[in-house]
């Protein structure tokens, strides 16, 4: 019974929070509700007994991805509303609704058909992490390694793009001396 209550509570809260994310014109509200929704999604994993995935959801999405989003938000004035440019709201509504419907049908069809079954069911008495690890490093080893290589490539690309002047320290920059900065400030 607790699980049912928790499920409906989490569902309602998640949908509500993600609605705020989409609807709100305030950057800060959108970001906060998205992060809170991510936390609640990890709650679904915990209800299903997938503790490991729940914690991974917390660490990856809440701890890392959302924090990077919010770091990008630093460049905006987070306390002001944003003017959105919606050139064709009707089209957006139809396309968004259709893709949502397609997703719901895709995931609901196997459940409705009752032909869904776990290919790698959890073992009693064995930790979640072990179960995931065994499947990941036997059957899905190649996709796992390919994903790792792709992430490595992305990381190197990011470093090359961002690191053009990395060997110069801004703190030790002596090309401009203090007097010059002061005279520029005075001129302003």
């Amino acid at each position: 019974m607790y699980e049912t209550i928790a499920f409906y509570l989490f569902s309602a809260l998640t949908i509500g929070l993600f609605l705020i994310t989409v609807m709100s014109k305030n950057v800060l509200y959108a970001m906060t509700s998205l992060a809170a929704g991510m936390v609640l999604i990890s709650g679904f994993f915990f209800i299903l007994g997938a503790d490991f995935l729940g914690v991974v959801q917390l660490i990856v999405y809440v701890g890392a991805v959302m924090a990077l989003y919010s770091f990008a938000m630093m460049f905006f004035d987070a306390t002001k509303d944003i003017k959105e440019k919606n050139t064709n709201p009707a089209l957006i509504f139809v396309l968004g609704g259709l893709s949502a419907l397609a997703l719901v049908l895709m995931f609901a069809a196997p459940i409705y058909n009752k032909s869904i079954q776990a290919l790698y069911p959890m073992h009693k008495g064995v930790g979640n992490a072990q179960d995931v690890g065994i499947v990941l490093f036997t059957k899905y080893l190649v996709p796992f390694e390919v994903a790792a290589v792709m992430l490595l490539v992305a990381m190197i690309a990011g470093i090359i793009l961002a690191g053009k002047k990395m060997d110069q320290s801004l703190t030790k920059d002596t090309s401009v001396d203090d007097d010059e900065i002061l005279t520029q400030k005075d001129a302003k």
């Binding site: 503790d51 917390l58 701890g63 919010s70 979640n128």
Partner: peptide
Amino acid sequence: LNIGILFVLGMMAAGLYGPLL
């Protein structure tokens, strides 16, 4: 939880939203 350490690290990671927000 049988993944206690990960949970604690994850929760401390979520804690960064306090100062951030």
